[in-house]
């Protein structure tokens, strides 16, 4: 049996047939070295299973060493697994996953498949989109999560919507267990833990307007 149950597969087929508009590209960077990447195989496998539920989902799997040039183009920095979403036109909106999006996080992958098939329009209030226009420098949002945290997917989703709203912003889920040193560097001991431009901005699940205000504060 696959990683997704037959009923999950039926659910996704139905959902995607109703909600997807165009194609979506998912790039995944992996390493075959188990000591470097415990969860690469399973990440690739689950994405393959999800991609099989709709023809419009195009999955491209790259090896971090063999496909060095493309890894560099997308600034993967040796992190595996890395997942990147692109629109049907190949537009990179800065939406990333570092580590496996398992457990609750997988729902955000499903959301992004639908969103990118529709051109990755940010699902934010007009007020938030207007505020985010002010950001004119490269800004990176990292959301540290654990797969068993029910408060994390909403934070990841908000971070991703914020990235879609402004080309200067990139945002990523970081699975804390797979990147212990990175987590230690930011003293992550509770999740969701949000780092903006290399500085801890806040910890916890905050509503949209507060999240956006934190991004504006730290982007300066």
């Amino acid at each position: 049996m696959g990683l997704l149950s037959p009923s999950d597969v039926e659910y996704l087929k139905d959902l995607f047939s109703k909600e997807m508009q165009d194609e979506v590209k998912i790039l995944v960077f992996k390493s075959d070295d188990k000591s470097k990447c415990e969860y690469c195989d399973i990440t690739v496998d689950v994405l393959k299973e999800a991609a099989e539920t709709d023809d419009r989902i195009q999955l491209e799997v790259y090896d971090i060493e063999d496909d060095e040039i493309i890894a560099e183009k997308y600034n993967v920095k040796g992190r595996v697994p890395t997942i990147i979403f692109l629109t049907s036109d190949g537009v990179d909106k800065g939406v990333r996953y570092y580590g496996i999006p398992s457990g609750h996080e997988f729902s955000t992958v499903i959301q992004n498949i639908i969103s990118f098939s529709k051109g990755a329009q940010p699902e934010l209030s007009e007020a938030s989109k207007e505020k985010l226009k002010a950001i004119d420098k490269p800004t990176e949002i990292l959301v540290f999560v654990t797969p068993t945290c029910p408060y994390c997917p909403r934070a990841v989703q908000l971070a991703h919507e914020i990235a879609k709203a402004n080309e200067n912003i990139t945002s990523a889920m970081v699975e804390a267990n797979e990147f212990p040193e990175w987590s230690m560097q930011h003293q992550v001991s509770a999740v969701p833990h949000i780092v903006i431009n290399d500085e801890t901005a806040f910890v916890g699940a905050y509503p949209e307007d507060m999240f956006v205000d934190y991004v504006l504060q730290h982007a300066r």
Partner: peptide, 10 residues
């Protein structure tokens, strides 16, 4: 485990 929750437009 993977939870495949999705959203439809409202």
């Amino acid at each position: 485990m993977f939870f495949v929750g999705g959203q439809t437009h409202i």
